[in-house]
Amino acid sequence: MRKLFALILALAMVFALAACGQTGAAPAGDKAADSGLIKVGIINLDPSESGYREANVKNLTDTFTKENGYDATFVTAPTADKQLEAAKGFITAQVKYILVSAAETTGWDEVLADAKEAGIKVFLFDRMIDCDPSLYTAAVVSDMRQEGETAVAWLESLGLDEYKILHIQGQLGSAAQIGRSDPLTEKCAADDKWTIVREGTGGDSWDANEARKIAEAAINAGEQFNIVYAENDGMAGGVVEALDAAGITHGVNGDVIVMGFDCNKWALRELLAGNWNYDGQCSPFQAAVIDKMIKTLEAGGSIEGLNALNQIISEEKGFDAREITQADIDTYGLGE
């Protein structure tokens, strides 16, 4: 009886493995060549990460469709190793283009060189990779550092007597985190009036609950801060929950200034209501630009308008709670 059970289990495992193999990066490979569709492999991060990512994934899946002439395979993975694995899979499956939004900025050189050798063109979207610009065709990205600088400049324009900051970082090592953190930490190092009271990370999933815990810990420890600099909306929301629970006022007429990034609709509404003070935009809509570039390449043309790093930078702004309007929310807000 026990042997029979073991045998069934073993068989089940083998079938499960076989099923996994089929759903990997290899499918639809041969069909595409016949149908005249352009084969692309798209590597993104997990949509559950944030409203930004959700909008980004949706933007790509809506653009790279069969109707639009693509045979696209999507992989969403939250970590660098899984993303690299997916990229290798795409190279083996001989796709024509690979699109990447990298979880981490480093570690891609080898895979990108392999792709280049195989004649695959690589586009980076949303996040930069730390490598030689010749390894990718173009990068359609947000200038995360610019986002950070805009936010810090806004904060400075308030002319406060002292800046005691609770700094909630995103996924450590990601371009978004580095770009948004650096201008702030540099400013704090340069100016005595600026201090980071507490620093913590929401982890790989930019988690609101982690952010809430960091804020709660700072409050429990009796730390005084007058600014919350959270590197995305969800985490800013988490901190606000902790502030509310501790009876600390925040927003336009409150004791604590709340700053977020991404411009989700719900976050912009908090701005409009005066509960938050600032939200930095980060455009998730890169698909149309990449689509256009691929079509140009397919037609034998060449891509123009790239800078020295082969980048096309999305234009982005920051919103102030004192000036935001409903029209801004409708135009720039993500999600619902």
């Binding site: 709660e216 501790a246 009876g247």
Partner: peptide, 19 residues
Amino acid sequence: IDLRFNNSGNMVLTGNLVS
């Protein structure tokens, strides 16, 4: 333990014990 008003104007008990 402290009694404070939060942003929505609600009275809340605060302090580590409540937390």
